[in-house]
């Protein structure tokens, strides 16, 4: 892994953290799962840096939380995050970044920057993240399937909006040009 890869991983972890300053939205039906810009930072890292470096950026962010940095939207952080019901969403950041990056790289030639980034973000940042986050939420809260469905549905508009934004940003910045390849990472 080169120094530029290291720098990019660090800076995208910092971007995910900095997006925590964007105010979070708490929805009444989302079982306490807030809508934050941070999950967008996660898919953005995957799309911009590729699967491996993107996942490492997300992992670095999670590690910072573990070490006690209060970087989550609303100023939370530390071990208590991993003891709480949204732990699955936080840990899910890592595979979400990986999958978004992987799918973007596979689709970008056929679908173009915008389409590939949008769809990759929907799959990685919405579908996969909820597939990991909601079961953990259910297990901790002891809730049933219909509650899970309501949570997933209430998070859908935010998820689509964030995927849209990721698509536009990719269209503007052209990750295929600026990020370099992942070869030898």
């Amino acid at each position: 892994m080169g120094l530029r890869d290291l720098a990019l991983i660090v800076l995208f972890a910092a971007i995910i953290a900095a997006l925590g300053w964007v105010p979070k939205v708490d929805l009444p039906f989302a079982a306490g799962v807030p809508i934050t810009a941070q999950s967008m930072g996660v898919t953005l890292a995957g799309v911009m840096l590729g699967a491996r470096r993107g996942a490492l950026a997300a992992a670095l962010f999670v590690l910072l939380l573990l070490f006690g940095a209060p970087l989550l939207a609303g100023g939370r952080g530390g071990l208590e995050v991993f003891a709480g019901p949204t732990a699955g969403f936080i840990l899910g950041f890592i595979p979400a970044a990986f999958v978004s990056g992987y799918l973007f790289d596979r689709w970008s030639l056929r679908l173009g920057m915008f389409g590939a980034a949008f769809l990759a973000s929907v799959v990685g940042g919405y579908v996969l993240l909820n597939l990991i986050g909601i079961p953990v939420l259910m297990a901790v809260n002891g809730t049933g399937l219909d509650e899970a469905a309501v949570t997933a549905l209430s998070l859908l508009p935010g998820g689509l909006l964030k995927a849209l934004a990721t698509g536009v940003v990719s269209y503007v910045t052209r990750p295929d040009k600026v990020a370099g390849t992942e070869a030898g990472v």
Binding site: L3, R4, L6, L8, V10, L11, F12, A179
Partner: peptide
Amino acid sequence: FRLLGPFIADTFRIADHVA
């Protein structure tokens, strides 16, 4: 959120300096 594009592009430039 249109500012995000140039912001990300700038982040890539900063990465070059940091490296």
